[in-house]
């Protein structure tokens, strides 16, 4: 009887802590700095060389997605610039095999959220407000929680018109 009781207690503790662990893992240990197929450095591009964001993420002003640069655009410069570096070789391989680069998405929103980059850019927001100090990052790190509360805190602070209305971001 006693053993059984203990075993049950052990099991209960294990289950509860499992839940806690799972939740904690989800909330605090999510990979905010995933490894990318090519070690692309924003620091070199946006920081040292001062390439404007919109040069590569050209849709941000026009569409709800900012877009990643097409491979042709990368190769356009890199056929001349540092063509022999090992990372550029990777890029070349993709280009020659006619394969797109499978970048890992760092800022990922659920499907039921409507987030237009265009509106935020037009409102005069700096990319860095949400994406952090990109020009000093070698590998991109997610600096914002992307939780609804985070969105709303800014919408409230900036007194966005209908900024707290569900419809503004959902459906």
């Amino acid at each position: 009887m006693d053993t059984i009781k203990k075993l049950v207690l052990c099991a209960v503790i294990a289950v509860v802590t499992f839940g806690i662990g799972y939740k904690v893992s989800d909330a605090y240990f999510g990979n905010r700095t995933p490894a990318q197929p090519i070690e692309f450095s924003h620091k070199i591009h946006a920081g040292d060389n001062q390439i404007p964001c919109m040069y590569c993420h050209s849709y941000a002003e026009r569409s709800r997605v900012s877009g990643v640069p097409n491979v042709k655009r990368c190769i356009g410069c890199h056929s001349v610039i540092k063509p022999d570096s090992p990372e550029i070789q990777k890029l070349k391989n993709y280009w020659e095999n006619k394969e797109p680069i499978p970048w890992v998405k760092v800022y990922n929103l659920p499907d039921h959220v409507y987030f237009p980059h265009k509106r935020h850019i037009k409102a005069g927001l700096e990319c860095q407000m949400c994406h952090g100090d990109v020009q000093s990052m070698d590998r991109i790190t997610r600096v914002s929680s992307l939780k609804m509360g985070w969105c709303l805190s800014c919408h409230t602070r900036k007194k966005v018109k209908n900024g707290r209305d569900c419809w503004t971001c959902h459906i």
């Binding site: 662990g21 799972y22 904690v24 893992s25 999510g30 640069p69 797109p100 499978p102 998405k105």
Partner: peptide, 18 residues
Amino acid sequence: GLAFGKVTKPPGAKLIPY
């Protein structure tokens, strides 16, 4: 739990450029 959370979390979505 931690490990399970890490493992089962959907792998990051991919951004496929043109």
